[in-house]
Design a protein around this nucleic acid. Sequence first.
DNA 1: ATGGTAGGTATCCTA
Length: 263
Amino acid sequence: MRLTTWNVNSVRLRTGHLPALIEATRADVLCLQETKVIDEAFPRDAFAELGYRHQVIAGQKNHNGVAILSRLPIDKHASRVWCEREDCRHASITLENGIEIHDFYVPAGGDIPDPEENPKFAHKLAFLREMAAYFRKRRPRNAPIVLVGDLNVAPLENDVWSHKQLLDVVSHTPIEVALLGDVMKSYGFVDAVRRFVPPEQRLYTWWSYRAQDWAKSDRGRRLDHVWVSPALEGRLREAHVHKAARDWTPPSDHVPVTVEIEG
DNA sequence: ATGGTAGGTATCCTA
């Protein structure tokens, strides 16, 4: 099974990229974030025509929004309110093969890395704490779970272009990195991509729109993640960051990330 | 040190 996560930054502006996305990823399951569209206007047919007939969509007007599009039958899907807000940042499904998939869009957190001063940062920290509490309580502990999405945290030194310069920049602050670590520990999740790309190697999934030449300045961050529970770790076969997608026009500022899981 | 761009919507907010 091949699974791709991608923050599309408007799904309607990226539907033209679907053939390229499918050719590059050969995904059975697509998990999207920042779809930025209400469910009634989601381009369902464009995905269905390409084989993604099983669809779970959770969108709202203007901001946020997540969607899971699958070629494999979906056995059930569930939604949940996070931080007492109906803001379309999560969808989850269980496939007929028993694998449970969680698609998250963690709040970006604004500019000021201080929860007292900045309510958006407080929301981000609360969201991460709630994710950790949710998976800590999950029973049994041996379920095959995949957690993906734009987690808006770059945890490792080589997940950002300058560890030192980003220590007080939202997405790489020690408090966020610690809380993301708590989410990871909550169910024993494994960073599927770093299983294949060693931590000594720089790896990004996002480059700002604000650079004149994103590739030349290469000031990226790894904000998009694929994690698997211990039950799936031994079945990981491949991981890939589709860096070339940053040049698909018009581009999202995030690129797709794909993993292959045996079975 | 600063400001740079993009998207959706409404004339600004979020990223």
